[in-house]
C-alpha cells in the first residue's frame, strides 16, 4: 500500500487540486508561510551570527558586562531566550490563525468523503 491509497479507499478520487486552489486553502497556506518563513530566516541568521561571532570575534565576546558575565555568555543566553520566545509566538499564532481554518477545511473534506 502506498502512503495514501488506503485512505482514499473506494470513494471516487477527490479533486485535491480544486481544494488546493480554493480561497480558504490559499489563505491558510499564505498565513503559514508569511509567519514561518521570515521567522526561520531570522533565527537561522541570528544563530549563524552568534556562531560567527564566537568563532571570529572571541575578544569582543570576552568583554565583561557585569562581574564575570561577558558578552558571549549574554549572547548565548539570548539564543535560549529567542528560541523560547519564537516557540511561544508560533504556538499562539498557530492556535489563533491557523487551526481555525485548518479545522474547518478538514471537517469539510472528511464529511464529504
Amino acid at each position: 500500500m502506498s502512503a495514501s491509497d488506503d485512505d482514499v479507499g473506494g470513494a471516487p478520487e477527490r479533486d485535491w487540486e480544486e481544494v488546493q486552489s480554493g480561497p480558504e486553502f490559499t489563505e491558510l497556506r499564505r498565513r503559514l508561510r508569511v509567519f514561518v518563513f521570515p521567522l526561520t530566516a531570522f533565527f537561522i541568521t541570528w544563530y549563524l551570527l552568534y556562531v560567527l561571532m564566537a568563532t571570529y570575534a572571541p575578544d569582543f565576546m570576552a568583554t565583561p558586562v557585569f562581574g564575570n558575565v561577558n558578552v558571549g555568555l549574554v549572547f548565548g543566553l539570548l539564543q535560549f531566550v529567542t528560541t523560547f520566545v519564537i516557540t511561544g509566538l508560533y504556538a499562539r499564532y498557530a492556535d489563533r490563525r491557523l487551526d481555525p481554518i485548518a479545522d474547518k477545511l478538514r471537517h469539510e473534506l472528511e464529511e464529504t468523503k
Binding site: 495514501s4 485535491w16 486553502f25 503559514l32 485548518a102 477545511l105 478538514r106 473534506l109 472528511e110
Partner: peptide
C-alpha cells in the same frame, strides 16, 4: 492539502 489541514 493534507499536510496543512490534517484531512485523512
Amino acid at each position: 492539502v493534507r499536510s496543512l489541514t490534517g484531512a485523512g
